[in-house]
Design a protein around this nucleic acid. Structure first.
Length: 431
RNA sequence: UCCGCGAUAGCUCAAUGGUAGAGCAUUCGGCUGUUAACCGAAGGGUUGUAAGUUCGAGUCUUACUCGCGGAGCCA
């Protein structure tokens, strides 16, 4: 008997096949049992008619509970009455492992219950759709950089000090060498990689111990960080917009089924094409003032401010040249205005906020030393970083894109916690 | 950390200070085309924890625990 996946049923109409999966839901009508089988690739209805199968098979089909693991054999047929258009005219049923009282029923559940059962919640159709989109986004990110001359060069997760000196970091003991911290960004190391390889990216988990409690924050999240030698702020913005166009258009092309399952309105996503609008921080502040917001120049935008700004555009907007005071020490100042940093944030539409943050980096050794001192950072931890400016310093730029925020935006979710199999948040560490 | 809201059956939720309820799930019965199937029946409760007010507390008061939404911070 041929073992196949639900997604390939269309190629096996009329044939006798075997499916392996879990019982998603069950309905019955006297001598008919309708078993919904899911196998990770899709869901199909398997029909057991009392007259067509042995008494034992019919009893088994009647008895097994939701999420029992099963092996179903039968003939594939096209059937309009069946959800999905195909069904299995079943002849046999083997129970691999019987389940009873599965906690997540096909009814509504509250978020606390679902998060407590996250390990099981992953089996539901929306969650599998999100994880498939996530996986495809990760591949699109890698493909984009791999196909554009970038070398993957990953950066350490355990680091001796805070790289930006702003966020609160998780710490742990490191043998006799004292404390180390879980990285909040691979950026400084990526700069070293870029001086070796020209165009690099790193892609991995990062950690923030900030007590953020919003729909946009996780304590553990994935970030991709490209870094390019001989690139200024404009080059950085061009890279960012081409990158976003590729990722979003790839998902629209390859994940239509999943976005459908998620009931995602893709109208705005289809607009994500080069060029993306570019506005300066000053222009963004003016937008807020025109909308009657009492905003003081020099402050960073809050979540509500970002939404107001991004709502002025039909695609992601790039905001550049922020006040240097609110940005990291390593960002290069604007030669035309010393108060500004050559920074870049990309704000996603529909209230999803900042998905990219980046900048042109300070390449002058003396200025960099000054900044490190002014930020009260331990200079000895940055000796290696300063070497990058001593030995062949060049203009260079890069940015970081938050994977989960991107998944949340593309999938149209209302909380970031559903974008990763096991989210880590301030008040949740299990399962 | 701050502000706000919440906790009642396995789940989602009701219950004027006066007998603890429904739908789903579970168990049993019925149905040859169900679509979160439907129909009938049954079992299922220390109302988050602790104290207080009261003749009487799921309901009012206080503290605590846990969670949710938001702010700040950021991707």
């Amino acid at each position: 008997m041929q073992k196949i996946l639900v997604k390939d049923l269309a190629h096996h109409v009329g044939k006798e096949i075997t499916l392996y999966g879990w019982l998603y839901n069950k309905r019955s009508s006297g001598k008919l049992k309708f078993l919904m089988l899911r196998d990770g690739s899709g869901i199909v209805q398997c029909v057991y008619f009392k007259g067509n199968v042995s008494g034992k098979v019919f009893e088994d089909a009647d008895r097994i509970g939701q999420e029992s693991s099963i092996e179903v054999t039968g003939k594939v047929k096209e059937e309009q009455r069946s959800p999905g258009g195909f069904e299995i005219d079943a002849t046999n049923l083997k129970i691999i492992s019987e389940a009873h009282n599965y906690p997540i029923t096909p009814k509504e559940h509250g978020i606390e219950f679902l998060m407590d059962h996250r390990h099981l919640w992953l089996r539901s159709s929306k969650q599998t759709a999100i994880l498939k989109v996530r996986a495809r986004i990760v591949k699109a990110i890698r493909d984009f950089f791999d196909n554009n001359g970038f070398t993957l060069a990953d950066t350490p997760i355990l680091t001796p000090s805070a790289c930006e000196g702003t966020s609160t970091l998780f710490s742990t003991d490191y043998f006799d060498l004292g404390q180390v911290y879980l990285t909040q960004s691979g950026q400084l190391y990526a700069e070293a990689n870029a001086m070796a390889l020209g165009k690099v990216y790193n892609f991995g988990p990062t950690f923030r111990a900030e007590k953020s409690k919003t729909r946009r924050h996780l304590t553990e999240f994935w970030m991709v960080e490209p870094e390019v030698a001989f690139a200024d702020l404009n080059d950085n913005m061009e890279l960012a917009e081409q990158f976003l166009e590729y990722v979003v258009q790839t998902i629209l092309k390859d994940c239509e089924k999943e976005l459908n399952t998620l009931e995602r309105d893709t109208t705005l996503l289809q607009n994500v094409k080069v060029p993306l609008p570019r506005i300066s921080y000053d222009e963004a502040v003016n937008i807020l003032k025109e909308k009657g917001i009492d905003f003081e120049w020099g402050k960073d935008f809050g979540g509500g401010d970002e939404t107001i700004i991004s709502n002025q555009f039909d695609r992601p907007v790039m905001v550049h040249r922020y006040p240097a005071e609110i940005k990291a020490f390593y960002m290069k100042r604007d030669p035309e205005n010393e108060k500004l940093a050559l920074a870049l944030d990309v704000l996603a539409p529909e209230g999803y906020g900042e998905i990219i943050g980046g900048s042109q980096r300070e390449d002058n050794l003396d200025l960099l030393i000054d900044r490190i001192k002014k930020h009260n950072l331990p200079l000895e931890h940055f000796e290696w970083y300063l070497d990058l400016r001593k030995y062949g310093s060049v203009p260079h730029s890069g940015f970081g894109l938050g994977l989960e925020r991107t998944v949340s935006w593309i999938c149209g979710l209302d909380h970031i916690r559903e974008t990763i199999p096991f989210p880590r948040m301030i008040y949740r560490k299990t399962p």
